[in-house]
């Protein structure tokens, strides 16, 4: 089914920040996507800066989660999805036939809304992705596991019970375990789909602190419903509505001085 591009609502380019290609990790060009006959994304074009936290905000159903899943090619699982446009990771089209999807997903890790550790021990959860790759000695693997757990600020809490079930951890610990599991395979980009929405405030703060720390060596993309969270952790924020990119700016600018009335209405809670 050909996608219908709605020309009337084409984005106002002045409200959209751009980055030089060499400073950006992901580049999305003319991306449209539909589930069957339901249009989810409409002609999105934006770049995601490297080693920064970029937040996608917008009302429910605006397509921000869909956008995130495209970056990880998880929509491949759905036969009904029709996609147009391209996504470049470090200049390479992630949908091109040369790209192995498993390899792509190792480079672009993803953390989901509610913690989904596997029913294995803490150790095995973090080792899961490493074992898929194979070719690592046990010692090397254990080193990476420790590094990943430290990076996810979980090591001190679990170092004495790595063999315990991952499901015995609290929700916040589980989410950090999932992040550690993702970090262990060495991604360049980390996609976070409302990573703290199922957690209590203290766990949320820990996750947010973790996100700020991780950007020293990772590009992070965060989808969130919580605008305070976006304001707290992100460097740049994109506002999406009805599958379109409305405004994309440094977080400070977007929240204090939005260029468009639509954005202002949303962030001040005056949704039409």
């Amino acid at each position: 089914m050909p996608l219908v591009k709605d020309q009337r609502s084409s984005p106002d380019s002045a409200a959209i920040i751009d980055f030089p290609p060499e400073a950006s990790s992901l580049a999305i060009r003319g991306l449209s996507l539909a589930y069957g006959d339901k249009q989810a994304l409409n002609d999105l074009t934006l770049r995601v800066p490297r080693h920064r936290v970029t937040a996608f905000i917008g009302p429910s159903g605006c397509g921000k989660s869909t956008l995130l899943r495209v970056l990880n090619r998880l929509h491949d699982l759905n036969d009904e999805v029709v996609r147009e446009g391209e996504v470049l990771l470090e200049g390479e089209d992630i949908h091109s036939p040369e790209v192995a999807v498993a390899e792509l997903r190792r480079r672009v890790g993803m953390v989901f809304q509610s913690p989904n550790p596997f029913p294995m021990s803490i150790h095995d959860n973090v080792a899961f992705g490493l074992r898929l790759q194979g070719g690592l000695s046990k010692r090397k693997r254990d080193d990476i596991i420790e590094w990943a757990l430290r990076s996810a600020a979980l090591w001190d809490e679990v170092k004495d019970r790595l063999r315990a079930s991952a499901w015995s951890l609290s929700g916040g610990q589980q989410q950090r375990l999932v992040i550690a599991r993702t970090l262990a395979v060495g991604p360049e980009v980390l996609l976070l789909d409302e990573p703290a929405s199922a957690l209590d405030p203290i766990s949320t703060l820990k996750i947010e602190e973790l996100i700020r720390n991780l950007k020293s060596h990772l590009t992070l993309v965060l989808v969130t419903h919580n605008m305070q969270q976006a304001a707290r952790v992100s460097d740049y924020t994109a506002f999406l509505q009805h599958g379109e990119l409305v405004e994309y700016a440094p977080t400070d600018t977007l929240f204090t001085n939005p260029r468009l009335a639509r954005t202002e209405n949303y962030i001040t809670g005056r949704m039409a």
Partner: peptide
């Protein structure tokens, strides 16, 4: 989510 979690790790 369990399935997606595994896929997201490159399985």
């Amino acid at each position: 989510q369990q399935r997606e979690g595994a896929l997201a790790l490159g399985a």
